[in-house]
Each structure stands twice: as structure tokens, then as C-alpha cells.
Design a protein around this nucleic acid. Structure first.
Length: 233
DNA sequence: CGCCAGGGCCTCA
DNA sequence: TGAGGCCATGGC
């Protein structure tokens, strides 16, 4: 299995995914390699989104982010000060709102040490380790922040990635670090590549590689261990 | 009605 | 270190 080839096939079918951020998004971006610089506010919004989307559909997260933006709460200092109850109400649409209100506050409180400057926080030596020390940030959320907000090449492994890879290779691998290592060792460490790749996995999982997969119509079935059995002979 | 979504924490072996 | 319970809304 060649990951680069897989990327090209997915990209040729689904095209640019243009994930993140929600606010102030560019309307037309011709290629995945030409993405504009993010503002500090957009970077913070991405961090919030990474936390809010834990086990939650993105549609519900967008609603919450728009609500927060209306109140000018894409702002770490303000999140620290707002009442937990009030914050939970604003993000109600994401589900798990009591937990996630705490998680957002924990993250923003961590930024206090950096005078609420996301850019200085992002400059710490072992940022991944520090992100993981924040309550509410696990490996996937940390890597999402590192990839989409910090824009450093950390491959994000989610449930979709595991499922698609399990079906393609025919081997189950639940270890996050091993799965991430697979991509890190076989792809150039390019944040924009990892960015689009992860988004394309999500898109493919929604279109074909669902829990109940639609193998017979899937364009990857010839090279997929699980999909091969659905090729008509 | 059931199932699932761009997971993580806590507890208990 | 791994399995299981818990968190909870909204779309289909």
C-alpha cells in the first residue's frame, strides 16, 4: 500500500477539502499548496474546533463556533472569564457541552502563562507534549491543533483513518502512534499534504467507507483487501 | 425508533 | 495497557 498514491486517488476524486477555519475563510483556493496565512484568531478558532468536534459531527460544531463568534468569544481571555454555565449554553449544539466547556476553559487557562498569545504558546519546544498535558486534549486533538492551527506536519489519526486503513490492508491496528508512524515514515513531512490527506480520509469514510461500507461502488476496491471480494467476476 | 458523528477522561482490573 | 462506562446534541 502506497500512501502517496492513495492520496492522489482520493484527491483526484474529491478535490480540495478546504477545512478550517470557519470564520474569515477564503472563497476560492486553487490548490492545496496555496493556502493563505492564518490570523491568530483563526488559529484559536481551529483549536476550539478541534476540541469541540471530539466524537461530534462537524455541522454541530460549526453552529457552536458561529455562536461563539457572534459574542466575540473566539478570545482566550474572555473564555477564561465567562461562566462555565454560560459557555456550555453557547456550545450546546456540540453535545457533551458540560465537559467541552471545561476543556475550552482549561485550554485557554493554559494560554494565560503565555499572556494569551497563541503564537508564543506555539513556540514552546515540545508543544505536543504540552498540549497533551491539558485536560481534554488527547493525541488526536493535539495533532489536529498541531497540523491545522500550528501548521506543522503531524498526521492526524482518527476513527476514519483506522477504519479505512484496516480495510485496505486487512490488518487491524489500534495503536495511535504506530498508525501515525506508518504515514510519517512513508510521506514527505508536508503540513499541507497531511492536512488534505486527513480531510480526504474523512470524506471517503462518509461517501463509501462507512461502518456499513459501500464497496461495490467504491473506486478503491481493486486495491482494498476488504473491497476485493466485491469485484464481480 | 436506533445509529452515528472530524474523542477523551476516569475507574478498575 | 486495555476494556468499559460516561458524556449529549442533531441529522438521518
Amino acid at each position: 500500500m502506497n500512501p502517496k498514491k492513495l492520496f492522489k486517488e482520493l484527491y483526484s476524486v474529491y478535490g480540495l477539502q478546504n477545512w478550517w477555519p470557519v470564520t474569515g475563510k477564503e472563497k476560492t483556493i486553487p490548490e492545496y499548496k496555496k493556502r493563505t496565512k492564518l490570523t491568530e484568531k483563526q488559529k484559536l478558532e481551529i483549536c476550539f474546533g478541534a476540541i469541540l468536534t471530539q466524537n461530534t459531527s462537524w455541522k454541530n460544531v460549526e453552529k457552536a463556533i458561529i455562536e461563539l463568534n457572534k459574542e466575540n468569544l473566539i478570545n482566550a481571555e474572555k473564555i477564561v472569564l465567562i461562566k462555565k454555565q454560560k459557555l456550555a449554553e453557547l456550545i450546546k449544539s456540540v453535545g457533551y457541552f458540560n465537559q467541552k466547556a471545561v476543556y475550552l476553559k482549561e485550554f485557554c487557562k493554559h494560554l494565560e502563562k503565555f499572556n494569551y498569545s497563541l503564537n508564543s504558546f506555539f513556540a514552546v519546544f515540545d508543544l505536543r507534549k504540552e498540549l497533551l498535558s491539558v485536560k481534554g486534549i488527547g493525541k488526536e486533538t493535539a495533532d489536529s491543533i498541531l497540523l491545522y492551527s500550528v501548521q506543522k506536519p503531524f498526521f492526524v489519526v482518527d476513527a476514519y483513518t483506522k477504519r479505512i486503513m484496516e480495510r485496505i490492508t486487512g490488518k487491524e491496528e489500534n495503536d495511535y502512534d504506530k498508525l501515525q508512524g506508518f504515514f510519517h515514515s512513508r510521506l514527505e513531512h508536508d503540513a499541507l499534504l497531511f492536512n488534505e490527506f486527513h480531510a480526504l480520509f474523512v470524506e471517503h469514510a462518509k461517501n463509501f467507507c462507512r461502518k456499513k461500507p459501500l464497496c461495490s461502488n467504491c473506486f478503491l476496491k481493486k486495491q482494498c483487501f476488504h473491497g476485493k471480494q466485491f469485484i464481480l467476476k
